[in-house]
Write a protein that binds this DNA or RNA. Structure first.
Lengths: 337, 337
DNA sequence: TTGTAAGCGTTATCAG
DNA sequence: CTGATAACGCTTACAA
């Protein structure tokens, strides 16, 4: 146990033979101090392994050098990459991140919010569990806030979301470029804006190519493999000549692949399949590995951190910023030969 | 913007018509203050929505009320439940958690460690990415440390790990109770202690039942569905009358199920399958839903937080504590009828 | 260029 | 029971 009293600026000053004031200036790179003196102070600080007491600093500067990350669903796979991107962008150089998980509970969220404000965080990132609009934390917070993934319902807030419409468009575009003409769309819970948006993007792109949706309609259901399997069976029944399926999630895509495999329908040669989310454990291990749309969540997290930094430096923004998604090509899609 | 000067204890004291000293005592529940006075102070504090400046408090008490969570792999599914359990146990009532992800990089870990110590955290939880032994952070840290999931290589440290041997035993025990006698074990990378331990537990339990491993050996390979599929094909070839497979992970189990399904071998009636990890997205969506061993990681996280609290309160511990795992029964196993 | 001294918002130790 | 007053470790005018 190194239980000796922590070394303070006084110790450094004493060792360097200067006053605490000069020591402080020297260490903080203030210009009004002789080079030789500064060197002596720096040396002393190093020798003593001095590290300034952040509480004392914060007490004066009114800045904690910390931000709060309020998430609603850590379990979920969406918060994590965002969180990593954010941590990344803050660089851990100056700002550290307080993590709080409200688990979808408003009470708990309020509680965490209080705790974070009590700790005097310099800013807040709020990460939702699903891409639907969520309630704003309010306008009277003493620190800037950025909403990521799930936008705030107050347009005065700054929200960062992924481009689900664009993703749907991108997926179908890819299938069309592969020469597919009879494209079906099987997706999840219609109560999710993500499901609606992806479908909208898909229909939009089909439209512009003068194509109709194979099967005649979007197959809304649930975000599960089982639904992917069930819907695919119905689809094959109604529309046996389908040559591509755009699945609204990788889970659903796994179900689709499963049934196609069962029916000995070759993928991608006869039917191409594309997923959504790029959930690696599902997409990369699929048979064949799944082409899918990546949400770029780390980038979302990085951007959130940047916007928050800007706001903390007095450059706030508002409105909803939509960030691009991207296509990950694997083996479940290929040009029609 | 509520940019008015934050309310301090002075404001409260003034409003209550007492000195700051008395106000402090009243708010901190010190006995030496008249009930009526205390009430007045508390009321004033509420009216002003006073919240004490934690920096000033920490400056005096030498306690930050924060702990650091140093993880090596946030992406991975293991850190998250541990992290949630820990957050849970700290209750966010008093202690907040700083999250840092080293991403398996020693340099980055050192860097984060410095940052956390600079922030004067009261304690540290280190979460490894895989259950193998990892390098200790060292003995000369100014705060207590608890290692979770991946034990430290220094026995003087306190490490909390899951019982992989017990898990292997538990899995095979369940299969035996289901009346299975020809049990095979397909598992992952033999370089992982988890693979070795689970196999050891399995062999141990087989032994005590006077049984041999079906297929004659443990099938070590990789932690992937593809390996699960490949190994199962070989297994069926060499040992067509196998009646149960213990898979070393849920991913592998998915591969096993896949091939059994392909070969029209009924699960669980002809062959029972059990996985490991209880990775919900894989286990619950499997066909049939997968019986598996749950690592109880949230509990591990909670215990880590408790041990750390104890250490912070002057009751340190050391050595390696092994926490029990548990069986999750779903439909891929059943008694032989 | 350096040092002195006044805070930052609390808590703790004393007298009253 | 209450109130000055001195810390806690640092930054920053202001003097020297």
């Amino acid at each position: 146990m190194a239980a000796n009293r922590p070394v303070t600026l006084r110790d450094v000053a004493r060792l360097a033979g200067v006053s605490v004031a000069t020591a402080s200036k020297a260490l903080n790179g203030q210009p009004q101090v002789r080079a030789e003196t500064r060197a002596r102070v720096v040396l002393a600080a190093e020798q003593l392994a001095f590290s300034p007491n952040t509480f004392a600093q914060s007490l004066i500067t009114q800045r904690s050098g910390t931000v709060g990350l309020l998430t609603s669903d850590l379990e979920g796979r969406f918060s994590i990459p965002i969180l990593m991107g954010a941590e990344d962008a803050f660089g851990s150089g100056q700002t550290s991140v307080f993590l709080c998980d409200a688990r979808g509970d408003t009470i708990r969220e309020k509680h965490h919010l209080r705790a974070l404000l009590t700790r005097r965080v310099d800013g807040l990132i709020v990460v939702g569990a699903r891409p639907d609009t969520r309630a704003s934390l309010g306008r009277d917070l003493p620190v800037p806030v950025v909403y990521a993934y799930a936008p705030s319902d107050d347009p005065a807030d700054l929200s960062l979301v992924t481009d689900n419409v664009g993703g749907g468009r991108l997926a179908v575009d890819h299938l069309i470029r592969c020469g597919r003409r009879r494209i079906a769309h099987i997706t999840g819970d219609p109560g999710y804006s993500a499901a609606q948006d992806r479908a909208r993007g898909a229909l939009d792109r089909l439209d512009s190519a003068g194509l109709e949706l194979a099967g005649g309609e979007v197959w809304f259901g649930m975000w599960s493999e089982a639904w992917g399997r069930g819907a695919t069976r119905m689809l094959l029944d109604r529309c046996p000549d389908v040559d591509a399926v755009f699945a609204g999630s990788d889970e659903i895509a796994r179900g689709v692949l499963d049934v196609l495999h069962e029916e000995r329908i070759a993928v991608p040669s006869r039917v191409a399949v594309i997923g959504f989310d790029n959930w690696n454990i599902l997409a990369a291990n699929a048979r064949p590995p799944l082409t899918t749309v990546d949400l770029n969540l780390e980038q979302l997290g990085r951007t959130a951190a940047q916007r928050l930094s800007a706001a903390m430096d007095g450059h706030p923004a508002s409105g909803t910023e939509t960030l691009p998604v991207r296509l990950i090509t694997r083996d479940s899609t290929a040009p029609l030969s």
